[in-house]
Design a protein around this nucleic acid. Structure first.
Length: 155
DNA sequence: GCCAACGTTGGC
DNA sequence: GCCAACGTTGGC
């Protein structure tokens, strides 16, 4: 079992919006980066857990937990010409973009990026590194436990 | 709105 | 397959 951080712009999909969806589940749409795709397609397993991160917003950081509930499958929006995520090079036989479905698990007490930066033991996190542009990164179980405890303390 | 970092594109 | 130019991400 693996642990992840998955970033989403709250204007596109916030943790609250996810919680209101049917089954509280959605495909992790819109990923157009090969590394992030490969994490989903090649490495994610059902029941993996991820911190839900709000990015490109006033208060970036961790807001909750989601669970991986499917293996990777071709992403829907790449086939829809009117979508901003349309991919003309994808065919049904050979889709370029793949994603998993994630389900809302729970909200956490907000852990800001600023707070995370205060902890030396988290300095290795990819989300804290300068110039990081990857919207999906793997973290260790130790990081997972540490950050969960942090959220509890902040509460 | 700035800008550093880095991914992608396309000519050669 | 190199690499310059360009585009995008995302924190600040």
């Amino acid at each position: 079992m693996k642990y992840w951080i998955m970033k989403s712009e709250p204007s596109e999909l916030s943790i609250d919006a996810l919680e209101k969806l049917p089954n509280k589940t959605i495909e992790w749409f819109g990923i157009r980066n090969y590394l992030a795709r490969n994490f989903m397609r090649n490495h994610m397993q059902i029941n993996d857990l991820a911190f839900f991160w709000h990015s490109s917003c006033k208060n970036p950081g961790i807001y909750g937990v989601v669970k991986v509930v499917t293996l990777a499958h071709p992403e829907t929006l790449q086939f829809i010409p009117s979508s901003e995520y349309y991919e003309s090079k994808s065919t049904l036989e050979n889709p370029r973009w793949w994603c998993v479905d994630v389900q809302f698990d729970k909200k956490l007490d907000y852990v800001s990026i600023t707070e995370l930066r205060c902890h030396k033991s988290l300095a290795h996190l990819k989300v804290l590194q300068k110039g990081n542009r990857l919207s999906i990164t793997e973290i260790t179980k130790e990081d997972w436990v540490y950050i969960n405890n942090l959220s509890q303390e902040i509460k």
